[in-house]
Simulated assay, not measured.
Amino acid sequence: MQTATATPWADAGSVDVLLFDVFGTVVDWHGSIVREMAHAHPQVDGAAFARAWRAGYQPAMARVRSGELGWTLIDDLHRIILDTILPQFGLAHLEDAARAQLNRVWHRLDAWPDSVEGVRRLKAKYICCTLSNGNLGLLTRMAKRAGLPWDCVLSAEVFRAYKPDPATYLGAAKVFDVPPHRVMLVAAHHDDLAAARACGLRTAYVERPFEFGRDQPKDVAARAENDLHSADLLDLADRLGCPAAV
């Protein structure tokens, strides 16, 4: 929810570029997959399915980082994970076309209710760009469907390295020809923010307590190491001096 009396951040003018983590921060991957499963496969526990699919995300990227797999797009990693978990949920019978359609749910994720307006307000003052492990095609289709008004779409695909590799954060700063300290990462994940800080970026935490569903709320307590802590992207816009249109 948006706070009524957000305190403006004194250093708002020290940042030129806002980079956004996407999955969980800007879009509701869990709720979107639950809704998709309720429509396509109502016999399946959609919440458990969504969490099982997401649980394979970091291990799959670790296989790329270790060299076990060559460079592999998130779309393809999502498909590998999907094929692994389908038997657990009684869906081993799905044909390839059905699996491909289900895998594309990651292109159809719904934005959190505050995201579109929040990004719209923030881009009036800052360059607003994705910095996601999702591949370019995925992020572009997602933005087009959800109406997310990015200035630019950047992905780990551009740098052929997955976050938290420094090549992603520093590469994004280089794209815009600004020093890292004039870039801020906006994310709902403290590990992502910590890696960005280690590269010299500023950091803003966004509360997404129900990223994993309302039955598994996250601890969203403020941490002193972040420059900003916000309830949502509208609150962040307030803190960064980007008022709503009158």
Results as ranks from 00 to 15, higher is better:
residue 94 L to G: 02
residue 83 D to Q: 11
residue 192 D to Y: 11
residue 20 F to G: 10
residue 109 L to A: 02
residue 87 P to G: 04
residue 239 R to W: 05
residue 129 C to L: 12
residue 97 A to K: 13
residue 127 I to F: 08
residue 172 A to M: 10
residue 216 Q to E: 15
residue 215 D to E: 15
residue 138 L to G: 01
residue 138 L to P: 01
residue 174 K to D: 15
residue 128 C to E: 09
residue 8 P to H: 04
residue 47 A to Q: 07
residue 59 P to K: 11
residue 240 L to A: 06
residue 205 Y to L: 08
residue 173 A to I: 09
residue 141 R to L: 09
residue 59 P to I: 13
residue 159 F to N: 10
residue 224 A to P: 11
residue 15 V to P: 08
residue 30 H to I: 01
residue 196 A to P: 12
residue 16 D to A: 09
residue 244 A to C: 08
residue 93 H to M: 10
residue 48 A to F: 00
residue 208 R to T: 02
residue 60 A to M: 15
residue 71 W to Q: 06
residue 67 G to V: 12
residue 189 H to N: 13
residue 128 C to P: 07
residue 111 A to M: 01
residue 95 E to A: 12
residue 180 P to Q: 06
residue 237 A to Q: 12
residue 30 H to P: 08
residue 108 R to T: 00
residue 212 F to Y: 13
residue 215 D to R: 13
residue 38 A to R: 14
residue 213 G to S: 08
residue 111 A to D: 00
residue 19 L to P: 06
residue 144 K to F: 10
residue 59 P to T: 15
residue 189 H to T: 00
residue 29 W to E: 10
residue 37 M to S: 06
residue 178 V to H: 06
residue 87 P to L: 06
residue 231 A to H: 12
residue 52 A to D: 12
residue 76 D to I: 00
residue 41 H to Y: 15
residue 61 M to S: 09
residue 1 M to Q: 14
